[in-house]
Design a protein around this nucleic acid. Structure first.
Length: 612
RNA sequence: GCGGCCGUAGCUCAGCUGGAUAGAGCACCAGACUUCGAAUCUGGUGGUCGCGCGUUCGAAUCGCGCCGGCCGCACCA
């Protein structure tokens, strides 16, 4: 039981229960659940075993609790067992256990919190999957970050995961993009070219950029008689029909690479990209087979999939329209069937909340194919409200320009963008205050977390500097605290304060937190872990120095002779503990995909020297 | 109308696979520094967990009903 996770304690309690059973003091088969105590008074861990088992045992909960407590009290790592309330058994470990267990994060480094690979079928997480018809906007950004952080989190929990992007690179929307590019090309040749009067075309500025780039595109190679005459090439393009497929191909390919570039900047990548066009190649045979098996039927010239009555669906769904074109649903369902064919045991999709009505249809479709509908999980990501100092930022869609994800990242930075997107559960609306995210003050959570890490690093840096200035014995202790090989070990008792034990215990909750967050598919919990750990440390640190005049390291103002009376053993223990805290912060930020800087840059206006 | 999500402190939200006195940040009020990173920290004010009924030893958490808000109900994607 080296790591003192809830699982470790669960085993310990299970063993105690087994012993009671062998002795005939218990007869039922209830498995004890062990959780971390919410309140300090309740110790470190608690189990409700007695209350849960009381019915089967036909005994009073308190009586069972007493018996279990007596058995648990024999364990050498357990300092105290209390029976409380209606029958809780509260366990408290010896504080030295927490101190010793810090060896785990210190040995694992940034892998701390991660678990060994599990023998389970891999999971596919599909996210973003925005149409390649325009730049990503802020809402896509949230889906991207939540999806990417979930992938990292599931991997930390020991799952095999593939991140996928599905390109809707076929159908009306991309054709509209091609047509819009064609219109803009004509306009370049003749500014009086009328703009379309319908609502379907894409009027954003980026389409004008696509038009300007079009003549140089490989799509149109060989079109003009004289390839070196740019104006001639442009005229040749303008003479093409609006629906020329090359406009579509050009726009689509440019947008795909632009989207991937934006995501790469956000540290979001994919192992696999699927294309709707590729899926569509095998679609006729796929649905012909379903038709043969009576799972799809032609009615009024369209082909319907027999989804009625499954997953709450009240009607059959069209997969091939009466004009012969396959619907989006038809290809999407085939894509999901293909995911299962490729061996995934579970599919997680991240969708915008406005797509929730599509979930039953998709699941019903899987059901028709004979797959368990619930292998598909959908995380609905709610909308993002962009604010600046609390005031709404206008996101006009009518004119076609809106705040793009690129602009947001350039404005506040990758770390702030990722972090803020992870400060809320995916299914609640999120206010993103751009001004706040840029601010270098404590009310900015990103800054707070990164500052906390920089501060931990600064202490360790200072300890290294100090090692060159102190006598031999002190140097060995500093070396031990910094984890240098060869230094004499640090006794556990050297880290003695209750708040130090409390923080050590908190550090060691990360493996549990990772498992629970992964299970719940809630990456935001990792950000909360960072926030709480940082806060606990900052509180400790200021109080030690300001209120107790008990700093971790001797202040620079101390004279050289005062260093002789310094308690270097205690300093060594604290340095080791600080390294463990820093490791946990780094590891957690790593799961969030946020950088853990070793130092913060000074801002122009917040400089310490100027401020006094 | 049918279905989904949401309703927790003045504001923004955690907590929701039932657990022992409901938490955080911001805001507001009152404090702590001649700095190992004060770019920090401490304390206080503040809540009928939308309302009602039920299940349970125990409900913010589960179920049902109502109220209020958002969203979806395509041979669009």
């Amino acid at each position: 039981m080296a790591n003192f996770t809830s699982q470790d304690l669960g085993k310990l309690v299970q063993e105690a229960v087994d012993r009671l059973r062998e002795r005939g003091e218990l007869t039922s088969r209830t498995t004890p659940q062990v959780t971390r105590a919410k309140s300090e008074e309740h110790g470190d861990f608690t189990t409700n075993f007695a209350m849960v088992a009381a019915k089967a045992e036909q005994r009073k909960p308190r009586e069972l609790a007493e018996a279990l407590a007596k058995e648990l009290a024999r364990h050498p790592d357990i300092a105290d067992v209390q029976v409380a309330g209606p029958g809780f058994v509260n366990l408290r470990l010896r504080p030295e256990n927490w101190v010793r267990a810090l060896d785990l994060p210190l040995a694992q480094g940034e892998r701390f919190g991660s678990h060994a690979p599990r023998e389970e079928a891999p999971i596919v997480v599909e996210f973003v999957s925005a149409n390649p018809t325009g730049p990503l906007h802020v809402g896509h950004g949230r889906g991207a970050v939540v999806g990417d952080a979930l992938v990292r989190l599931l991997r930390a929990a020991g799952q095999r995961v593939t991140a996928e992007y599905y390109w809707n690179d076929r159908g009306r929307q991309v054709r509209e993009l091609g047509r819009s590019v064609a219109v803009r090309v004509r306009q370049l040749v003749d500014p009086s070219t009328p703009l379309p009067t319908d609502e379907n075309w894409y009027r954003g500025d980026y389409v004008c950029d696509l038009a300007r780039e079009a003549p140089a595109s490989a799509q149109f190679a060989g079109l003009a008689a004289d390839e070196t005459d740019e104006a001639a090439r442009l005229r040749a393009l303008a003479a093409l029909p609006e629906d020329d497929e090359r406009f579509t191909a050009h726009g689509r390919e440019r947008m795909q690479s632009a989207i991937l570039a934006t995501l790469a900047k956000l540290r979001v990548g994919f192992e696999y990209q699927e294309s709707e066009r590729r899926i569509a190649e095998s679609i006729a045979g796929f649905y012909a087979e379903l038709e043969r098996r009576g799972l799809a039927r032609v009615r009024d010239g369209a082909l319907f999939l027999a989804t009625e009555g499954k997953e709450g669906e009240d009607k059959d769904r069209v997969v091939r329209k009466s004009d012969g074109e396959w619907t989006y649903f038809a290809t999407d369902l085939l894509y999901h069937a293909d995911k299962l064919r490729r061996g995934f045991g579970r599919m997680i999709n991240i969708w915008g909340a406005d797509h929730h009505g599509y979930i039953p249809r998709m699941r019903a479709g899987l059901g028709v194919l004979g797959h368990p509908p619930r292998t598909l999980e959908v995380l609905l990501v709610q909308m993002v409200n962009l604010l600046s100092d609390g005031q709404p930022v206008k996101m006009s869609k009518r004119s076609g320009d809106f705040v793009t994800l690129d602009e947001l990242i350039d404005e506040v930075g990758v770390d702030a963008t990722r972090y803020i997107f992870l400060t809320r559960r995916h299914d609640s609306q999120l206010d993103f205050d751009i001004a706040l995210a840029k601010r270098r003050t404590l009310d900015n959570p990103v800054f707070y977390a990164q500052y906390g890490h920089a501060r931990l690093s600064a202490i360790l840096r200072r300890a290294e500097e100090l090692a060159g200035l102190v006598p031999e014995g002190a140097r060995d202790r500093l070396a031990a605290g910094l984890g240098r090989p060869g230094a004499a070990p640090i006794p556990e008792s050297a880290l003695a304060l209750p708040e130090e034990h409390r923080l050590a215990r908190r550090v060691l909750t990360l493996p549990d937190a990772v498992l629970e967050a992964a299970e719940a598919r809630e990456p935001h919990r990792i950000v909360y872990f960072v926030q709480e750990l940082s806060q606990a440390f900052q509180s400790y640190y200021t109080a030690r120095w300001k209120q107790h005049d008990d700093p971790v390291l001797p202040p620079t103002r101390l004279a050289r002779e005062a260093l002789a009376g310094w308690d270097w053993e205690r300093t060594a223990a604290r340095l080791r503990w600080i390294r463990a805290i820093r490791t946990a912060v780094r590891a957690a930020l790593g799961i969030a995909g946020v950088e853990a800087p070793d130092r913060m840059e000074w801002s122009e206006d917040g400089d310490r020297e100027e401020g006094g």
